[in-house]
Design a protein around this nucleic acid. Structure first.
Length: 938
DNA sequence: AACTTCACG
DNA sequence: GACGTACGTGAAGTTC
């Protein structure tokens, strides 16, 4: 039947169905093979319910499910940040996408998508065509972006709420009729799709304005007449942006379509095809239901795996057995394994290399695992035996050519429909990136463990395998040895390497199968998917970019330090009366406390005197009592400072300058710190000196490349701002809103000193207390830090609690929460386990303070992680590169002259990083600097 | 490998 | 009443 008068077209918004299904259901997997299938199951149930409900008097004559296709549309050309806020599609949803199309066809409903066009535009076009042909249209969706189409024979239907959306419902939502919806949307913007709109104007105000002026163009033309000065200025200043927003929200009713309305005529499902599909998906209930409806025989259920699995050793899962692992020697065999990965939609991957340093490591082999126990190792760079001193090692036989192997691996490793599962994938990501392969989508068992179990244990493969599989993997030491006799992995014989390497991939896959369903149960999915996994490519790019370090500057400093140290050592020997190893705390302690007779030396658990800086500082004040010791202590303090700078910074950093890039490439561990912070290693670039004048000069060696500038942005007082928000401290929040000096404001509040009479001494004390609170304050700790009597310190704390009562409540509530749940949580839902909270003795004190600190430090970590993940898209066109993260600071390199543009873009990302999930009651403020070196930029 | 010290936020 | 204590990290050097 040709579409025409009296016809009724149903248009189903496919993506809406899929996302609703995905989020409504736990992460189901197909029983026989673990294929993620939850969204497909929900989608099929919704389609079936739709078909059943759509029968009867007002039944459609034509219907189609419309899907989005491709990520780049004309809207991206108009505005490159369109939908830039969107989180990446969850990795376990991606492989389900093609299956939803298949499901639609199995139900014998027209399934349409058009490369480069959003489903919404296709729906707009079809609705127009149907109206013009004299028919009626129902759009099955509750998406507000489609509401502009309502009216004149077009209505929407919210399948979840079973509610028709007509002109009245649209007006209730937008405050205007369907024909003015786009005007309101243009003004109000949309954070989900990243439509800018007019700042400060929401739907309510927008509707008010449109109703007053009639339409958007009139409003913009007569903006001068608006009474409210701020609103008037906003509209005048942002007219272009508002017009752009309107273009973005307006659906295109002229999308070219490769089919016609007539093609969408309702068809009865082909029973066998439908049952075949549902059965293959192993949807038992739905298969039975559909079979009953059609009076058909349900097909025999596919063979199911053994009954419900025990947590440790699943009965259908034999223990890893290295004898079963396969060694891939040629292209045909590799193709077979890759085909298996394609068929399933996932593969566990692990690389073997010659070094733990990803920037210097050479690829030696790749292991793959498809199913528990089915793993293979692909040797690529093994050498024979030990070779001789003159590099006589030769390439081992029976290995595929590296180039050929990589060219076969690349399409699979980059295939968006195949999940690549790894343990610590940032490592493998970088190794492959250096061979021109950008691995994705990714799943990482280390990060899954971190998201679920932070605070309980570390997240290395050995720990996870032991705890969750009850299996101890082959120790790497058995292959490469340890200490002086250690060799690189390429020297290991291929058969031995196969047993070890394939096992790692096998274990990774097994861990993934256990962790995946557990993520939801542990409420860790959101953190994992929004803050851990997306960080992998971001950090990998930062690490590979590296930061330019001028080794000559460092070398000169080293020499100067060496001279100064030698001078000090001479002087020290003289004062001490005997030369000794100044670097030995033990020898120093004996000289100070035994030979020179300083009183009050305290021995630690090893029986040695403590000689930390605080002890030496006290001794250095004893000029009158023991001038010799005072002089010695003071000299050693100087020596230690220089020694530290030299050994840890000026000397060590030089060895980290990469010979080819001339830059230093640190490595960030994502799952190292319990609170969600990153940690930087090899070298640690998060503790480059800054507090002392001499130390700060080391930052002069961190320089911009030729023609480039270093830019640094850091959050101002982020932890105190978070504290003010979570503990609900009205005075502190007000101080932040007013942009006051927070420590001075605290001091004023506590000591009743007006701000204009504040002294630096009072402010210093308030600052110490502010930090103390973040750390889980104690009278003892504050007393030691401020060097005041304990009683006095306790008095300060009491007064602080009195003036900021929210603090006490926050601390008590947090500790009580930790005791009850054995974990604490950040604003963003990151959980940090606190098993020690139940301990007795001093450990309980530690655990308490850690529990108080974790939500604050953790939320700050969440915020900068979120900023970092959004950063690459925001700065890619400048062009600029993000190089380093130091907890509350991000360091960039940008072309000279583009620094201001970078600061504007990066600041906006950082200050808005809590949104949209969290609206803080204090503003986030970011300070910025720029210069030729880190010293200048900070 | 453990301990001490000290650099950072 | 005593115990011990600020939170989170990584690296270098000494000692065992």
């Amino acid at each position: 039947m040709a579409f025409g008068k009296g016809c009724h077209l149903h248009l189903i918004d496919g993506s809406a169905f899929i996302f609703r299904a995905y989020h409504a259901l736990p992460p189901l997997t197909r029983k026989s093979d673990g294929l993620p299938i939850g969204a497909v199951a929900g989608f099929c149930n919704m389609l079936w319910k739709y078909i059943e409900d759509a029968k009867g008097a007002d039944a459609p004559t034509h219907a189609a499910v419309i899907f989005d296709k491709g990520s780049h549309t004309f809207r991206n050309d108009l505005y490159d940040l369109y939908k830039a806020n969107r989180d990446e599609m969850p990795a376990d949803l991606r492989p389900q996408m093609p299956l939803t199309r298949e499901a639609t066809r199995a139900f014998n409903i027209a399934c349409e998508e058009q490369e480069g066009y959003e489903a919404d535009d296709m729906i707009a076009t079809l609705a127009r065509q149907a109206r013009e042909a004299g028919g009626r249209v129902t759009i099955i969706s509750s998406d507000k972006d489609l509401m502009q189409l309502v009216g004149g024979g077009v209505e929407m239907f919210d399948a979840m709420k079973n509610k028709v959306i007509g002109p009245e419902e649209v007006e209730a939502k937008f405050g205007v009729g369907p024909d003015r919806v786009i005007d309101v949307q243009a003004l109000a913007g949309d954070s989900v799709d990243n439509i800018p709109g007019a700042p400060g104007i929401g739907v309510k105000t927008a509707a008010l304005l449109i109703n007053e002026f009639g339409d958007l163009e009139t409003l913009l033309a007569r903006a001068e007449e608006i009474k409210q000065p701020k609103r008037r200025q906003t509209l005048i200043d942002n007219a272009d942006q508002i017009r752009l927003s309107k273009k973005l929200v307006t659906l295109d009713p002229e999308t070219p379509l490769s089919f016609t309305l007539d093609d969408l005529e309702i068809r009865e499902p082909h029973v066998e095809t439908l049952l075949g599909f549902l059965n293959a998906m192993e949807f038992r209930t739905l298969t039975r239901r559909v079979a009953e409806k059609f009076d058909a025989e349900p097909p025999p259920a596919p063979e199911l795996a053994a009954p419900e699995a025990a947590p440790l050793a699943e009965p259908d899962e034999p223990a890893p057995s290295p004898d079963d692992y396969v060694c891939i020697r040629d292209a045909d065999m590799l193709r077979q394994w890759l085909d298996q990965a394609r068929a399933r939609g996932w593969v566990a991957v692990d690389t073997e290399t010659t070094s733990l340093d990803e920037m210097r490591a050479e690829l030696v082999g790749v292991s793959l695992c498809i199913e528990p126990g089915q793993a293979a190792y692909l040797p690529l760079g093994h050498t024979t035996g030990d070779g001789d001193l003159f590099g006589g090692a030769e390439r081992a036989e029976g290995q595929m050519d590296l180039k050929t192997a990589l060219s076969l691996l690349k399409p699979v490793l980059e295939d968006p429909a195949i999940l690549k599962i790894g343990q610590n994938m940032k490592y493998d990501f970088k190794i492959f990136a250096r061979h021109g392969i950008r691995v994705g989508p990714i799943e990482d068992t280390m990060l899954m463990s971190y998201a679920m179990f932070s605070g309980l244990h570390n997240h290395g493969m050995d720990t996870l395998s032991d705890r969750y599989l009850g299996h101890q993997p082959i120790p790497i030491k058995e292959l490469i040895g340890s200490g002086k006799s250690q060799v690189t992995f390429d020297k290991v014989a291929i058969d031995k390497a196969t047993r070890y390497a394939a096992e790692d991939a096998d274990i990774t896959l097994r861990l993934w199968r256990r962790f995946k369903p557990r993520l939801h149960r542990e409420a860790a999915t959101t953190i994992y998917e929004t803050e851990e996994r997306p960080l992998i490519p971001v950090l990998a790019d930062m690490e590979m970019a590296g930061v330019r370090v001028d080794a000559q500057v460092l070398s000169r400093m080293s020499n100067a330090f060496a001279q100064k140290m030698a001078g000090l050592e001479e002087e020290i020997a003289q004062v001490a009366g005997t030369p000794f190893n100044v670097g030995s705390p033990k020898q120093l302690g004996e000289i100070l406390f035994d030979q020179m007779g300083v009183e009050g030396g305290k021995k630690g658990k090893t029986g040695a005197y403590g000689t930390g800086a605080d002890v030496l500082e006290d001794v250095a004040t004893l000029e009158d009592v023991n001038p010799g010791a005072a002089k010695l202590a003071s000299l050693v303090l100087d020596w230690r400072q220089i020694s530290k700078l030299k050994s840890t910074y000026t000397d060590a950093l030089q060895t980290h300058v990469h010979p080819e890039t001339g830059r230093v490439h640190t490595s960030y561990s994502i799952a190292g710190a319990n609170t969600g912070r990153l940690a930087s290693t090899d070298p640690n670039l998060q503790n480059i000196p800054v507090r002392s004048e001499e130390g700060r000069r080391i930052r002069e060696a961190f320089v911009a490349g030729p023609g480039m500038t270093i830019v640094s942005l850091d959050y101002s007082q982020i932890e105190l701002r978070i504290l003010a928000h979570v503990a609900d401290l009205p005075e502190m929040k007000a101080a932040f809103r007013d942009g006051l000096d927070i420590h001075a404001a605290t001091a004023s509040e506590m000591f009743d000193v007006p701000l204009d009479q504040m002294t630096s001494e009072i402010r210093r004390q308030a600052k110490a207390i502010n930090f103390g609170v973040i750390y889980g304050i104690s009278g003892f700790g504050l007393a030691r830090n401020l060097r005041i009597p304990r009683k006095e310190a306790q008095g300060f704390i009491d007064r602080y609690f009195e003036r900021f009562p929210g603090i006490r409540t926050y601390m008590d509530d947090t500790v009580a929460f930790a005791k009850e749940h054995k974990y604490v949580e950040t604003l963003f839902g990151r959980r940090i386990h606190t098993p020690e909270i139940a301990a007795k003795g001093p450990a309980a004190g530690f655990a308490k303070r850690a529990a108080i600190n974790a939500p604050i430090q953790g939320a700050a970590a969440d915020i900068i992680r979120r900023a970092m993940i959004r950063m690459p898209a925001a700065i890619k066109d400048l062009p600029a590169k993000m190089l380093l993260q130091v907890h509350d600071e991000l360091i960039f390199e940008v072309e000279q002259g583009k620094a201001e543009a970078l600061i504007a873009a990066a600041r906006s990302v950082m200050e808005g990083a809590a949104e949209p999930v969290m609206k803080l009651s204090v503003p986030l403020v970011v300070d910025a600097g720029q210069g030729a070196s880190w010293a200048e930029a900070h």
